[in-house]
Simulated assay, not measured.
Amino acid sequence: MQVRPLALAGAWEFTPQQFGDDRGRFFEWFKASEFDAAVGAPLELLQANCSVSAAGVLRGIHYTEDPPGQAKYVTCVRGAFLDVVVDLRPGSPTFGRWDSVLLDDVDRRAVYLSSGLGHAVLSLEDGSTIMYLCSLEYTPELDRDLDAFDPEIGIDWPTVGRDGRPLEFLRSAKDAAAPGLAEAFALH
């Protein structure tokens, strides 16, 4: 497995080695020993989630109040997503900055984000499916959201899907009503 740290401390990209033959493909999408060596600590697994999205569905920016925070290990099992990680750790030299990784069913990359980092995904084709491992069970009272289109964060969202057609962004009412970075962090 190849490991690449992202531009934000506490976030990594994992690209597995794939093995194929006339039966199909095999790869290890998570391996504790390689994860521990890269990150320096084990991933405590308390919940696993699956999300299926149409092209243009934008989920996030989501994060969990830190502490306790929620770490995630995310991969795409079908289709393609732009996975975006945002540094939401006050006092961090990269607070408010973001980095992204294309997660798809070709390269089979995974992204790990430590607690204190925000997360958003944009589906680049219909039926795209992500699976993610979480270090904390969903706790609604700790769940937080930021506006994915906040100009202060300035995420460069693609406007064209994997098939070359324009994307029409679709967000939940909760995500569309989320505050910007300045408003959210003035409350803390």
Rank of each mutant, 00 (worst) to 15 (best):
Y73I: 10
H188M: 11
L136M: 07
A71R: 01
T15F: 04
L170Y: 15
G24N: 12
A110S: 07
I153W: 12
V39S: 01
H62A: 10
E34N: 06
A120R: 01
T75E: 15
S53L: 11
K72T: 03
D107F: 07
W157K: 06
T15E: 08
A148D: 00
P16K: 12
F30S: 15
V121G: 00
R165S: 12
T15H: 05
D87V: 12
D163W: 00
F27K: 04
D87N: 05
R89C: 04
D83W: 01
A54I: 12
G69S: 01
L46D: 14
L187F: 14
G20M: 12
G180A: 01
W12R: 02
D145T: 12
A11K: 04
A71F: 09
P68E: 13
F30K: 08
D143Y: 14
G20V: 09
Q18W: 07
G118M: 07
G164S: 08
D22Q: 14
V3D: 06
Q47I: 04
A177Q: 10
S33V: 13
A41I: 11
F26R: 07
T64E: 15
S100D: 06
S100N: 12
D175H: 10
A176G: 13
Q17H: 06
E13I: 02
G91P: 06
L122S: 00
G79V: 07
W98N: 00
L82I: 09
A177G: 07
Q2E: 11
R108K: 11
S53H: 06
Y138M: 04
R59H: 12
H62N: 13
P151N: 04
A54P: 08
S128T: 00
Q2P: 05
F35H: 03
H188R: 13
P158T: 10
E44L: 04
L8T: 02
L6K: 07
H62P: 06
R59E: 06
L102N: 01
Y132D: 05
L146P: 14
F19R: 14
H62F: 12
G10D: 09
P166D: 08
L58F: 04
G56R: 02
C76L: 10
F30N: 08
S100L: 02
R4N: 11
V106K: 05
D145W: 15
F185A: 09
T94N: 05
F185Y: 03
L117W: 05
P16Y: 11
L167D: 10
A184E: 15
T159S: 13
R108I: 08
S53W: 01
L103I: 00
F81T: 04
A178Y: 00
N49T: 05
